[in-house]
Write a protein that binds this DNA or RNA. Sequence first.
DNA 1: CCTACATTTAGCCTGTTTGCTAAACGTGTT
DNA 2: AACACGTTTAGCAAACAGGCTAAATGTAGG
Lengths: 97, 97
Amino acid sequence: MSKPKGIKDVEVADSVFAALAHPARRQILLSVHYRGSCNAGEIANRFECSWPTTSRHLAMLVASGLLDVEVVGRERIYSANARRVQNVLTKWAGFFD
Amino acid sequence: MSKPKGIKDVEVADSVFAALAHPARRQILLSVHYRGSCNAGEIANRFECSWPTTSRHLAMLVASGLLDVEVVGRERIYSANARRVQNVLTKWAGFFD
DNA sequence: CCTACATTTAGCCTGTTTGCTAAACGTGTT
DNA sequence: AACACGTTTAGCAAACAGGCTAAATGTAGG
């Protein structure tokens, strides 16, 4: 850990809440979680917006750590990082006890 | 309840996550919660940005239901709606069990 | 009523986000 | 090698968000 913990937490919260701010990204995240794992095509096909747009949403979710991605051949397999979602959300919920 | 519950939930999530997406708003929300309640001046004075900017953040937090406001004379007294914060966050955390 | 005070609204500018289409990339298949 | 397939990158327009300053609103007190 190269930075003080407090700083890192702030950055994590920043990127996670920013990622969750868009309805399409929340929907993608839930959808991937419920299916266990998906390739990008399965995800993009179930959403109205174009593939490149979905691809960008996926990239943001990966950057924030909410999705994990594994490259298999010419496909990308996405899976939800449920622990990270829960960590951030329950931590913030806990602040309001 | 004039709309189906599912629709309302989506709208709530939308406004709440949008409100939480900005660091200043998260900070304001936490700050108000820990102090119990504040008038707008106390809040604005502790943040770097100008009063009108803070005022807009406050309005967004109120619109999303995360802050409650009570007008007392010429002051506005804000208080955090902790239950609502927790409801939304724990509900979403629960989706990832 | 007139002034002072607490706060918001209006108007403006700038940077970011979101969406699109078209083109590129990398990997399997023939 | 050539092609097809899955996906991303580039580049652009439109919409949105966040910041500021200046002006307006509404209440309290002399």
